[in-house]
Write a protein that binds this DNA or RNA. Structure first.
Lengths: 128, 128, 128, 128
DNA sequence: GTGGTCTAGACCACA
DNA sequence: GTGGTCTAGACCACA
């Protein structure tokens, strides 16, 4: 699944796992119906405490991305892509709102922020 | 100085203090040269332990916003406004970059994000 | 790690710890990658409050000598020796500059200072 | 007497006063027999708490540089220059010893330190 | 009065 | 177990 962790980060490792799983879903790497590596496998692969992976999986189940069948293992839910995309858009809007609020407080005009957005989009486009 | 703390927040109290002081600087409430309430006064006002306030003040000193004179007290540095604004702009640009990256990953176009920005700016404007 | 504290010293305990850790690094006793005793262990060993040790460790982390992994413990950074040596040399040069300035002010010639240096080097050499 | 203070420094102000007085003696600005400004005058001139100046004067008396005649005021002792120079040389030697010890610990050769001394002497010479 | 340091002890999230 | 945060309270040098 190619999950990359930064053990130094202030962000808890289990949250990093949750976040990266969502990223893989958005990238189409993790697909509805996929069987997820067991907690043990994953913890071995990431050289991380099994409890930590377990915590991440539980969170992903709670959010409806993962579903566990007793004795069979954990699988990616049917509607993952839709689910994650919808929430991501919601989250992005919220982030934008906070950003605009802060920018406004420092006296930055709408035009300026939109210029930034434009510039960063070009930068992202060039990488591809 | 009207600092409001949220004791239920995940964010440490001392960080909340640091953050709010910066906000007050941006609002022009806290001005260069001001004498800052003593650690004891502030801790009494916030009903928080003096050590916690001290930790916040030291961080603010380390960041160059505060300067303390032995036995006299703590004061707001000369170049605060400039300093905080400069850093804030830098931080906002970085946030925008991350936001754009994420938006791009979900397949959202530049135009869409700029519409959001526009809309939120109007919303902020109406509040005034 | 054999840290010796002088509780009567004017120098704060946490600074003494920081300083001694650096000395151990220069001596090659503390090596990159080493796991550092936990805050609790160290505080027990030094019969000092955990908070005090914590303060020292955080300073060492801030200076880039230590790195801590959540829930796992604190470790010595990869480039410690280089880092500490580089800073030490810089500091020694600065000390030399101040010394020369003072010596010059009292009317002591360059030759004289160099004689002192020579003599003290011999003295250090004899100890070995 | 042209005393310059840095209220920001970690070094206590009273120590800074003591140190600067010694420097003025070495420069020949403060001479044996001189009448010293009263604590009040000096504290006004330095915009510093009288207690602070008083503490500095007491220290200077203790060290034999100043002498007070009841009702007449405080004066510079007869043998100041000799006294201060002698002690300064002693102190410089001690500093050199510590410096050499540290330099040796980092693996710096005697030749290197002497080069530094030479270079800084040139730098000081050029200023004149 | 002012900040700096320290102790003793507690609770918490995380691994 | 590991570090992070916080409280309550104390003592100190300095101004």
């Amino acid at each position: 699944m190619h999950i990359m962790l930064d053990p130094t980060s202030r962000q808890p490792i289990y949250e990093q796992i949750v976040q990266q799983v969502k990223a893989r879903v958005l990238q189409g790497v993790v697909i509805a119906g996929d069987k997820v590596p067991s907690v043990r496998e994953m913890s071995a692969e990431l050289t991380v405490n099994p409890n930590t992976v377990s915590k991440a999986y539980k969170e992903l189940e709670r959010e409806g991305l993962f579903i566990t069948f007793r004795g069979k293992g954990t699988f990616v839910s049917e509607n993952v892509l839709q689910l994650v995309q919808k929430r991501e858009v919601k989250s992005l809007k919220l982030q934008t709102e906070k950003l605009v609020q802060s920018a406004h407080d420092v006296g930055i005009e709408s035009t300026e922020v939109k210029k930034w957005v434009e510039a960063f989009y070009k930068k992202v486009g060039e990488k591809e």
